[in-house]
C-alpha cells in the first residue's frame, strides 16, 4: 500500500517525463520510499512496479545497481564516509577509523541501539571539503575533523533523547 502523501510525491516525479516513459521516475520514487521507510523492501518494489507499469525485476535491478539504495534496514542514521583518494589524502580514512572506535562498530555495521550504520563510500563529489560524509543520503557534512565527528554523533544522540 502506498500512502496518499507518498503518491503525491511520486506524481510530481512522474510528471517530469513523457507519459509513456514513467519508468524514468523509478530512481526518484525509490529514493522517496527509502527516505520514508529506511530501506527498499520486496513489497515496495512490487508496489512501485505496478505504479510505474514496469516489471518488478526491472525495479529490483535499479535497487541493486545503485550504491545508495539500502537493500536491508539500516540504523536511524546512515553515515557514509568517503575514503577515495582525494579524501584519503586529507584524513578521510582516519575519519572512518575514528567513527569505528567512537561507535564501537566495524565499517558496514550498525550500533546495537539501531541508531547508527557506518559505511565507507566512493566519491561524494565534495573533494575539496575532505573529510566528508553523507548522512541519510541527503545531508552532506563537510570538513569533518575528529572534534566535529564527536559533535555530530553526540548531538544526534541528544536530539534522539539518548544523551
Amino acid at each position: 500500500m502506498i500512502s496518499e502523501t507518498t503518491l503525491a510525491r511520486f506524481a510530481r516525479e512522474v510528471a517530469k517525463y513523457p507519459a509513456e516513459q514513467k519508468q524514468s521516475a523509478v530512481m526518484a520514487c525509490l529514493a522517496i520510499v527509502q527516505q520514508e521507510q529506511g530501506f527498499i523492501s520486496d513489497a515496495s518494489e512490487a508496489a512501485l512496479a505496478v505504479y510505474l507499469d514496469m516489471p518488478q525485476i526491472a525495479v529490483h535491478e535499479v535497487t541493486t545497481f545503485y550504491n545508495m539504495y539500502n537493500q536491508a534496514p539500516v540504523g536511524k542514521y546512515k553515515l557514509n564516509v568517503c575514503t577515495n583518494l582525494p579524501c584519503l589524502l586529507r584524513d578521510g580514512g582516519k575519519a572512518l577509523e575514528y567513527l569505528e572506535k567512537k561507535l564501537g562498530i566495524a565499517m558496514g555495521g550498525t550500533t546495537a541501539d539501531g541508531m547508527f550504520t557506518l559505511q565507507q563510500c566512493e566519491c561524494l563529489g565534495a573533494c575539496a571539503d575532505a573529510p566528508v560524509m553523507l548522512v541519510n543520503d541527503r545531508s552532506m557534512c563537510s570538513f569533518m575533523s575528529d572534534d566535529k565527528l564527536d559533535q555530530l554523533v553526540d548531538s544526534l544522540r541528544s536530539a534522539e533523547g539518548q544523551a
Binding site: 516513459q21 519508468q23 523509478v26 530512481m27 526491472a58 535499479v62 545497481f65 545503485y66 566512493e122 543520503d137
Partner: peptide, 23 residues
Amino acid sequence: HHGFGAYICGEETALLESLEGKK
C-alpha cells in the same frame, strides 16, 4: 533528475540509460 550512487552514470550513454529508469 537525480542519480543515486553510480560513478558509471557520468558516462553519457550510461547516464541516458539511467535517465530512462534502468541500470
